[in-house]
Write a protein that binds this DNA or RNA. Structure first.
Lengths: 106, 106
DNA sequence: GTGGAATACATCGTATCGCGAAGTATTCGA
DNA sequence: TCGAATACTTCGCGATACGATGTATTCCAC
């Protein structure tokens, strides 16, 4: 799939992956894989960006002697998803413009 | 609207704007405005990129003593739009993942 | 008849971003 | 024992959107 098309979905998709229960890097990648493949470097960049934007919080926990960082969505993160849903209306309008479906003959 | 979300739409949207009849820079921006606002610098970058990718051809013509560059979509450009439609199925799957609509309980 | 908006195209520099590459460290199964 | 899987991190590159800026012409209001 076109990389550019993914861009707007990535952030919100990661937020969606942790929205139902806290998750960690490796699991997020696995959960997203059926929908959207992303590399580790990409994910950790996104996670840091979302943390800086206060859309999620991080908590370290040990699991089988290995460190795991659990990510938890904040209200601001949920708000981001809600905004995405709003934006989607505009996206669909653009989609119809591109595919020439039910155009009002401008 | 989120800039990132626009990214995947921009190229294909410009192609759509010239798909029914040849058009030129200023008109493309005007035609797209109801759906997607983009600056001139962005558009000319995109037009050059699409030309380099052989998705459109350019032809200069004089209009009222002023130069105009008319852009014409190629079969490859049309193919790009068709591919976009295909990609859209995946995009919708991601949308459902994000909005948790009819998830098959993974 | 003059000035400013609109038309029309072009270039440069910057910030953002996805991702490949490479690295560290542990656990688990063949 | 050795490689795959798990788990996180950093660096650097290339692509890209866009603001700023510049050039040049036409058209309309005053």
């Amino acid at each position: 799939m076109d990389i550019q098309l993914k861009r707007g979905l990535l952030d919100v998709c990661v937020l969606a992956a942790i929205s139902e229960e806290d998750s960690y890097g490796y699991k997020i990648i696995k959960d997203m894989k059926p929908y959207l493949v992303l590399s580790e470097s990409t994910l950790y960049t996104i996670l840091k960006r979302l943390e800086a934007a206060h859309m999620l919080t991080v908590r370290s926990a040990e699991h089988d002697g290995r460190l795991r960082k659990y990510y938890h969505i904040t209200p601001e993160g949920s708000k981001r998803i809600a905004e995405f849903k709003e934006d989607w209306k505009e996206i669909m309008a653009i989609y119809r413009f591109v595919t020439k479906e039910e155009q009002p003959h401008a």
